[in-house]
Write a protein that binds this DNA or RNA. Structure first.
Lengths: 109, 109
DNA sequence: ACAATATATAAGAATATTCTTATATTAATG
DNA sequence: CATTAATATAAGAATATTCTTATATATTGT
C-alpha cells in the first residue's frame, strides 16, 4: 500500500503540497531551522546566527510561521520562535539520506 | 542528538539542500512522483497521466533525474522513468504528516 | 509623552523558475 | 535513406520568489 499512497491526489492538493515543500526550499530558511534545532530563540538571536538583514530574516520567519513550521511567542520587546514539530528534523534527515551520497557529510551533490 | 543534527551545516551544504528540496517543490513534479509510485512508466504514459505539453513533462523529468530522484532507461524508441529510491514516499508521507491537519485527506491547508 | 529598542510590513528592483514555441536528436520502419 | 514516432533541448516570454530600502508598529524605560 505504501507505494500507492500518492495515487489519485487532486491537483489542488498537489498545489498545496508543493507550496508546503517550497517553504523548506531555501538556504536561509534551512539555516533558521538548523539554528532553532532544540531551542527557542528571539529574532535578534536568530539574526546574529544567520547573517542577513533584519527585514529579510523577519520575512523568512513569517513565511515559516504562516506555513506552520514555526511557532512564535512575544515576550515584552522580543519575539521568540521555535520549531513547532520536531518531526521536521526527521524529514530533513530523510532528505539528506535520499539526496546525499555520504549522509554523514551533510547535504550532498 | 537528534535535535542537533543540523548544527554547523555549511552555507554551501545549505544551498545544496535547498536545491534538493526545491526539486520536489512543484505540483507537476509531485504528480509525476505520484503517478510513478510503484511502477515504471514511459514518457508517453506519464504525459497522458499528467496532462501538460510534451516539452514541459520532459523538462520536469530531466530535472528530477538530474537531481537523482528518478532513474531512466531507454528501450528502443521509448524512455522509461522510475523512482530511484522508494524512501522518497516515506519523505512525502512525512511532509503530509507535518503539514496536514488530517493526513488521510492528502496535502493540507 | 518621547525616545530607544525590537520586530514587522510595504513596494519595487533583482533574480530565479516555469512555460511556450520551435527545433533537434534518436530509433524504428518501409 | 526518407519518414514517422518518441523524447530532448534551446531560447525567450511569462510568472514567481527573494532581496533591498524605507517606513510602520509594539513595547519598554525616562
Amino acid at each position: 500500500m505504501r507505494a500507492n499512497c500518492m495515487a489519485d491526489v487532486s491537483d489542488e492538493k498537489l498545489d498545496r503540497g508543493a507550496r508546503c515543500i517550497k517553504t523548506l526550499a531555501h538556504p536561509l530558511r534551512l539555516k533558521v531551522l538548523a539554528v532553532l534545532a532544540g531551542r527557542e530563540m528571539s529574532v535578534g538571536e536568530i539574526l546574529d546566527a544567520i547573517g542577513t538583514t533584519q527585514s529579510n530574516v523577519s520575512q523568512h520567519l513569517s513565511q515559516l510561521r504562516d506555513k506552520g513550521v514555526l511557532a512564535s511567542r512575544r515576550e515584552g520587546n522580543q519575539v521568540f520562535y521555535r520549531v513547532r514539530d520536531p518531526k521536521l528534523f526527521d524529514l530533513l534527515a530523510l532528505v539528506r539520506e535520499l539526496f546525499c551520497d555520504r549522509p554523514v557529510d551533510g547535504w550532498a551533490a
